[in-house]
Design a protein around this nucleic acid. Structure first.
Lengths: 167, 167
DNA sequence: CCTTAACTTCACAAATTTCTGAAAGTAGCG
DNA sequence: CGCTACTTTCAGAAATTTGTGAAGTTAAGG
């Protein structure tokens, strides 16, 4: 309940959240720097920061920022913006899109399915192992389909709670 | 279509699948040894192997098997069985349970929710960042609920396709 | 009881990953 | 057209992770 001194946004609290959320992401398998950068963006009021700002808050080199951002952009968790007329870039987390990216994991699922399909083919549909893999494969295909529907329901749910869509 | 020479199960093909599936798991964030051990179990006809068998097929030390199995057991992806009267243990992948474990990820979700809740509290519900986090939190809570229902539908679907449940 | 078979733990060597500083691009702006 | 402000790339130092051999523990079987 200690209202921070106005514009300062209680750096202390922000930093504490950033590090603890990043730690969770790391435990879930994300690399450390991307996790920290992402958490910082998430906790910024703008939802966007420049490379310099990130470097200062996290005490990391420009090189580290660059690497982390490249990774996050590839994963569709942040996007790059060029403020027109400046060379400076801002990295932004789109409130909705990032967890949608997280959920779909399209690429990952598809590759697993591919590997399983090969497994079924090469071990033989008739073998016990083949059958086990076929079932697993069916599961992933099922999940694929379900997730799309689930996200649709989420968007409806979200609109109901938070009002009309952003953007 | 090269029917393997009877009982030999085409070691070649098995090994090829094991390594390629393990590679996918690694890319998805799993450690190498657990991934390889898991893939080996998945492709065994029994769905279960002893420590020695695993060591031989994968060419790794008993210590490595031990470590990998401990990890997999913690994640509820395999279970240990004691064949009565022998000190030998077998590690088994339960066809259904492992991917259910994968999907639920209960613990992970809960911890993320916890971290986000703290974030909302410490940054303030009124702030833009606070609102962003509240929405993200709502998303995870929504997913939590959906997943249970989805798994229910899966079991029905599965039964329809593969016949009555095992076990 | 003693022996032996099986799994586990531990300390260390090796491999891999991660982050940095320095150098090199690249594009705005005068 | 050159200067300056940003970003990216790269090579290497540092830290972390991973897998092994060897010793330790436990229980089955004689």
């Amino acid at each position: 309940m200690t209202e921070p001194t106005g514009a300062q946004r209680d750096m202390e609290a922000v930093s504490k959240f950033v590090e603890s959320f990043a730690a969770q992401l790391v435990e879930a398998g994300m690399q450390r720097m991307p996790a920290r950068v992402f958490a910082a963006l998430l906790s910024s009021d703008e939802g966007a920061m420049t490379s310099t700002e990130l470097g200062e808050q996290l005490r990391i080199s420009p090189a580290a920022v660059s690497g982390a951002v490249r990774y996050l952009a590839q994963q569709h968790m942040v996007s790059r913006e060029r403020e027109p007329g400046s060379r400076r870039e801002r990295y932004r987390v789109h409130s909705n899109q990032w967890y949608e990216a997280l959920t779909s994991r399209e690429a990952v699922l598809k590759r697993w399915e591919g590997a399983l399909r090969e497994g079924v083919a090469s071990l033989g549909e008739g073998t016990p192992a083949g059958r086990r893999m076929a079932e697993t494969l069916a599961f992933f295909e099922f999940v694929d389909g379900e997730i799309a529907a689930m996200m649709e329901r989420w968007r409806a749910h979200r609109e109901r709670i938070f009002g009309t869509s952003e953007a």
